[in-house]
Deep mutational scan, measured.
Amino acid sequence: KKKIKIYIENENGEKKTIEIEVEGDIDEIAKELAKKYNVKIVKIEP
């Protein structure tokens, strides 16, 4: 498992940072999160 930080922006332009532990393809997981929460991924840090 890797701990990563995902910087997101919602439709109101509010920026947030999510810190999660992931296993597998980080890009795939980030895309799923973006779709699920309707946010834009700004940056992903390993």
Rank of each mutant, 00 (worst) to 15 (best):
K1L: 13
K1Y: 07
K1V: 12
K1C: 11
K1T: 11
K1A: 10
K2G: 09
K3G: 06
K3L: 11
I4H: 07
I4P: 00
K5E: 02
K5H: 06
K5I: 10
K5S: 09
K5N: 05
I6R: 00
I6D: 00
Y7V: 09
Y7S: 06
Y7H: 11
Y7W: 13
Y7G: 01
Y7N: 02
I8P: 00
I8K: 00
I8H: 01
E9R: 04
E9A: 03
N10C: 14
N10D: 13
N10H: 13
E11K: 10
E11S: 12
E11M: 11
E11R: 11
N12P: 01
N12E: 09
N12L: 13
N12A: 12
G13S: 03
G13R: 03
G13K: 04
E14Y: 10
E14N: 07
E14Q: 10
K15L: 14
K15E: 12
K15R: 13
K15T: 14
K16N: 12
K16G: 15
K16A: 14
K16R: 14
T17S: 07
T17Y: 10
T17R: 03
I18P: 00
I18C: 11
I18L: 13
I18A: 01
E19Q: 06
E19C: 12
E19G: 01
E19T: 11
E19P: 00
I20V: 11
I20L: 14
E21M: 10
E21N: 06
E21G: 04
V22R: 04
V22W: 15
V22T: 12
E23W: 14
E23G: 06
E23F: 12
E23Q: 09
G24L: 02
D25G: 03
I26K: 01
D27S: 09
E28A: 11
E28F: 07
I29C: 11
I29L: 11
I29T: 03
I29D: 01
I29S: 03
A30S: 05
A30V: 15
K31V: 08
K31E: 08
K31A: 11
K31Q: 10
K31S: 13
E32N: 09
E32G: 06
E32I: 12
L33D: 00
L33M: 09
L33K: 00
L33S: 00
A34F: 03
A34N: 05
K35E: 08
K35M: 06
K35F: 04
K36S: 04
K36R: 12
K36M: 09
Y37I: 14
Y37H: 15
N38I: 02
N38A: 05
V39G: 15
V39L: 05
K40R: 06
K40L: 09
I41D: 01
I41P: 00
I41M: 04
V42N: 04
K43L: 11
K43Q: 07
K43D: 05
K43T: 06
K43F: 11
K43R: 13
I44V: 08
I44F: 06
I44A: 02
I44S: 02
I44G: 02
E45F: 08
E45Y: 07
E45G: 05
E45W: 10
E45N: 02
E45L: 08
P46T: 14
P46E: 14
P46Q: 14
P46W: 15
P46A: 13
